[in-house]
Amino acid sequence: MRENAYSVKIDVFEGPMDLLVYLVRKNDVDITNIPIALITEQFLAYLDLLELMNIDYASEFIYMAATLAHIKSRMLLPPVPGDEDEEDPRMEIARPLMEYLRLKAAADLLEKHDMLGRDTFKGNPFHEDDAHPEDQVISIGLFELVETFRQLSENQYHDHVVDFKTNRMTVKERIIGILSLLEKKATLSFEELLCEHPGKFMMVLTFLAILEMAKMNLIEIRQHIQNGVIKVAYV
């Protein structure tokens, strides 16, 4: 490791592909006919420069340099007899480069779109956080639900004691419990439900009960757009 107390990190080129694109453009060469030796030389010179400036670069750069050197060495070898129609070894780098350029161009085009909030605006019949905060919900996917569960269980669970004596509740019993809660209160937050009975077992049971109820179409699971609170409501 270097001993210098100060090191600077700049992202001039985000990755080896970016650098390669830059070199190809700078030298104004055709992608399908890349002068490998020239490009490799400049590629390595850039890495040297980074090293000189005490900038750490990712191993991807070295891998790319190795790929370039490998291509060059393959080009120097005479074609294997009987395998004359072997493709240009440079295609190994030209193909991903072309794809990358194509996507870069697509990204440029996408950026030129009229973006909502930047170039074009929609009328707001009601102001964002107006009268009906309850309406501002989106249906959520399973992954958000699982993520919330993971977060809550991380905050919650401390003891690792397994108690075999307690009478374990079943999913069915838990569903009945949640239903009676919902009868009292039309909507409940996911957090309220999960934290009602602490402990991993009860949390998992509650989670399964909620999923089961959603599957049976008893409840609706929705997430508030602004604060991200997941709510469970009677259908």
């Binding site: 080896p16 592909m17 970016d18």
Partner: peptide, 8 residues
């Protein structure tokens, strides 16, 4: 994605 962009 990383294969195309060549970066994490």
């Amino acid at each position: 994605i990383e294969h195309i962009r060549g970066v994490d």
